[in-house]
Design a protein around this nucleic acid. Structure first.
Lengths: 239, 239
DNA sequence: CGGTGACTTGACCTCTGTCAAGAGAAGTGG
DNA sequence: CCACTTCTCTTGACAGAGGTCAAGTCACCG
């Protein structure tokens, strides 16, 4: 169960046997959610953090006029609300975008890790810092890229992240979001989301069918996206 | 010198005397920068992190077509590139937006803190998590708010953050950014930035003169911004 | 076989970017 | 002390990206 976290952290640094034993000793409660169920609600103060074992989830905020903005996408292996461990109060909600299997880890266990395992603590910290780096990249995409480039960038990012967790199949990966949900990711209207996707499709850059995205021309997609994977820190080095 | 960090962390939790002594024992090298100088360059691997003692700084990324997006603003007391401690390679640059005085803290010292002081580590971790929360709020503003509301939100945020560091004077605070720099924050053109500022001015919500911003109607500004300060975590509680 | 949800497409309109020009303020050098 | 440059702010005119409204198609499902 917690092996998926070990696999995730291993993308950034070596996890020693001792550390693996410590992680495996942490009790994890498994639970399943349906699509569209909240994994964590805004303004709640959960006493545990949620490790995503299977499925897709999103952080989101609602505006007073009823629109939604998705601020982050999460795939299997992501510790989706590690933040709540220190933030205490959730400033946003987390929703399942597909049926999800998760593991709940009590904050007291994380507290124990911070007291006893400095290196593991730094790696968990790193994961939240990478979340921040992804946020910055999204801000750049929203502020200074065309919608077409923004979408291309997002697909490049998701491809690399899912590849790191072994969730890709060649240049394809399972991706269950509807175009309406994607619109809430990019911050645009459903209609324009559709037209933006079609623009990439017509140029033979991506395929998107049956909840499966396929990158048809990786190099060209990276070029129009101005994609540089440095911010994902997918490099094993001492941290 | 490092007292400003203690003051900053004290906004979120109690710092014990022992912890203060530990922090004060850390060597800090002071340095000054002119406006428009890079404090940290993109793609560099600095062996130290930068604590902003005085002035304003911004994280930014450049796009291939020469435009700039500012992804975060930093005020005195912010540990502007704590991230580099774990990220190792900077995925963005940090620039001085005014003359700045900073303190450099070697990563080896931060490493020492993570080994010896679990609670302080959690507080430094918290600061990077709050940076992430601010990023999310910016994403919501860029994706789903009007430009007017986005600007209002930013002013509310800056007011609260500067107030927490004792940098406000009534409802006014020093703010040296040009409108062109603000355009790079909100991700719009200089011309429209100007019109957006004027819109808030005409309605008597803010004043903006001589590099000084004044909030003229806090309640109304918060309303149109849909501002909820929860995400800033400006609350003293055990972390 | 009707209903539901997701995806498409067209028409139209608004918000925001671009281009251009002018007004102030501030600093520089003779 | 005065011309001169430079930078920032301001305003107008126009164009283009993206939003809104509306309708229609398609696949899936009970």
């Amino acid at each position: 169960v917690i092996d998926i976290l070990i696999q995730n952290l291993s993308n950034h640094d070596i996890i020693t046997d001792e550390e693996q034993i410590l992680l495996r000793s942490i009790p994890v409660r498994e639970r399943s959610y349906n699509a569209d169920e909240d994994l964590v609600s805004e303004n709640s103060r959960p006493p545990f953090s949620t490790l995503l074992l299977e499925g897709f989830a999103a952080r989101y905020k609602l505006t007073p006029d009823g629109t939604r903005q998705i601020t982050a996408l999460h795939v299997a292996g992501d510790f989706v609300d590690l933040h709540a461990f220190l933030l205490k109060t959730m400033d946003h909600g987390i929703i399942a975008l597909s049926p999800c299997r998760v593991g709940h880890v009590d904050h007291s266990e994380l507290q124990m890790v911070t007291q006893k395992a400095a290196h593991l603590t730094r790696l968990l910290w790193l994961k939240t810092i990478i979340d921040g780096a992804i946020h910055r990249e999204w801000i750049v995409a929203m502020g200074r890229r065309s919608k077409r480039a923004h979408l291309a960038h997002l697909i490049c990012e998701l491809y690399r992240r899912m590849e790191a967790m072994g969730l890709t199949n060649g240049y394809s990966f399972h991706f269950p979001l509807s175009q309406g949900e994607m619109a809430d990711v990019l911050g645009l209207s459903l209609v324009h989301m559709n037209r933006t996707i079609q623009s990439l499709r017509k140029d033979g850059l991506i395929g998107w069918l049956n909840h499966t995205v396929t990158v048809l021309d990786w190099d060209e997609l990276c070029t129009i996206a101005d994609f540089d994977p440095t911010y994902l820190s997918l490099r094993v080095e001492p941290r």
